[in-house]
Nucleic acid binder design. Sequence first.
DNA 1: AGCCACACGGTAAACGTTTACAGCGTGGCT
DNA 2: AGCCACGCTGTAAACGTTTACCGTGTGGCT
Lengths: 335, 335
Amino acid sequence: MADGPTINTIAERAGVSIASVSRVLNGLPTRPDTERKVMKAADELGYVRNAVARSLKSRRTHQIAFAMADIGNPVYLAMVRQIQPVLKAAGYRLVLHSTDAVVADEIDVLHSLGERYVDGLIMCPIRVTDDHLKMIAAARAPVVIIGLVPDGTQVDNVRADSRAGVRLAVHHLHSLGRRRIGFLNGPLDTVPGAAREAAYREALDELGLPYEESLVQIGDFYREAGAGAARELLARSPGVDALMCANDLIALGALDVLRASGRRVPEDVAVVGMDDTDLAAASWPTLTSVSLGSAERGRAAAELLLARLEEGDRTPSVVTVEPRLVIRESTGGPA
Amino acid sequence: MADGPTINTIAERAGVSIASVSRVLNGLPTRPDTERKVMKAADELGYVRNAVARSLKSRRTHQIAFAMADIGNPVYLAMVRQIQPVLKAAGYRLVLHSTDAVVADEIDVLHSLGERYVDGLIMCPIRVTDDHLKMIAAARAPVVIIGLVPDGTQVDNVRADSRAGVRLAVHHLHSLGRRRIGFLNGPLDTVPGAAREAAYREALDELGLPYEESLVQIGDFYREAGAGAARELLARSPGVDALMCANDLIALGALDVLRASGRRVPEDVAVVGMDDTDLAAASWPTLTSVSLGSAERGRAAAELLLARLEEGDRTPSVVTVEPRLVIRESTGGPA
DNA sequence: AGCCACACGGTAAACGTTTACAGCGTGGCT
DNA sequence: AGCCACGCTGTAAACGTTTACCGTGTGGCT
């Protein structure tokens, strides 16, 4: 692990100046024999360009950061899986930040852009505070936000349409003849929770179905919480014939409870989840789920950022990814 | 996004030299009023230290790379989830590389260590070739390998004990009274496939059970392949009363087929998977699975690398993580 | 043969830090 | 009062590149 060769070592060995070495390595026009001497020396020494020195001079690190709450969350995982190859193809490395949904950590990441260790940032803020907006406006490198930002914010932005997603699911259940469509949601003080609640009401409205409090149960976005919520809802409204769940984990919890209560899925109760994680395909019965296009959002964000790096003065774009309903056994789809 | 302030800007504004600025920022002894002037100027300018310049001088990037085949694989995901916080706590950033199980890409990553954009590397090679070993020996930064390396290789190494894992599972099935224990494996020319095959034979031997070819079926490490293998095995040996599966996906495929064939799990056939991914807890029935300690391996690798960075001349260590059997419904565990 | 144009190569500065070294001023000592 | 020691500060070099600028040598032209 001794000090590696530098451009100087090569210059010395090849009997040329460091400028020539640099030019050869960068493919600038050189006399053939100079090129040969340099390449020979470089090969013999096993030379590799120092990325740090390069970055210092060129002001490009060829690194991009992705910041999300927790890579264990399948939604973020799906994003990373798309972001990575896009960046790699464009010659960028991926630096991963987990913020554990701590706002201060997110602010930290934004602040650290000033260190210039990355050329840009893709961020999924858990919720967007004024601090976020201030830091984003002042950021020393391009930023793409995945998630809702206040209208008019000057930043490249990719968003899902969870409203349309819930609508898709509720209409699907309605088309199956279900009329007592329960709703298992997460906390209303989260961005997705609030949006999904509103969308559920809206969808019922469109279909001419009444909103009944007894059909709605709020828990949290986890499996246990979903099971608990399902139990309560079933106790209160045993006649429910469909369950719209605010994410797949809630839906899995609901499936557990339905099974335990002796109800058949989908014959007695049809179930729809949300996010279309790989758990949806793995459960039994397999779970119909609304895909909010995490993969597409990841890809779009990466492409937006690359475009911005190419051409810094484009006006910020907003990309909205359409939801998609993936029909599986839990609403009568194929096995 | 104009050029940010540098140490020079601060020096000018504070009326001191850049050396003093640097000293203040690094907490070296300074006269109180110098410190005050510098801090004031730095605050007013919103100064942030340039990480690249710092790295160039200090020869430390405070970045560590993690290279694996595919972060979509729950095993690698579990590792990343442990590695990330350990590195973060130690002040390192995580650079992620997906090699898609392409050997050339792995070699590339090893080669790129010469660029010195990271201080070290944690790698999960899909299989270890001579090229790997050569590059590792010559690597310009510390490397930790997760997975089997030839004995005597001079490199920090973390390994699972899949042999012991299979043994654990087979003994568990035996203790439940099962005597016709089938084995659904992946390809034998992969490192895990070969190891698990050997371990299965060994375990049967210990228990005095005969090795029967008709009870073994080789497919691949995916759900569909697992289903296919299970179908063949059931057709050939309908009397099988337990299935040892070489990973969780194979086991899920087997569960599908068992259900379709009208067999009850675990009453008629008990099933054990391997890797203890979150799919095991999500399936129905929930799946007993052998954890090979991916999380622990990730953590151990990160700690090994940090130790090596502290003290470069330790002799390389080998850490072996013990497997653990997680008993769930598919072998009669609690719901 | 003499001149010019041109292509290539070398010198040196720059990117933004850290740090060795030397210089300077203050305070305490004799 | 003079000297020394010490503590802080400034100058400059270094980390490993890229690149602007200038000099040199070659070839072709008249």
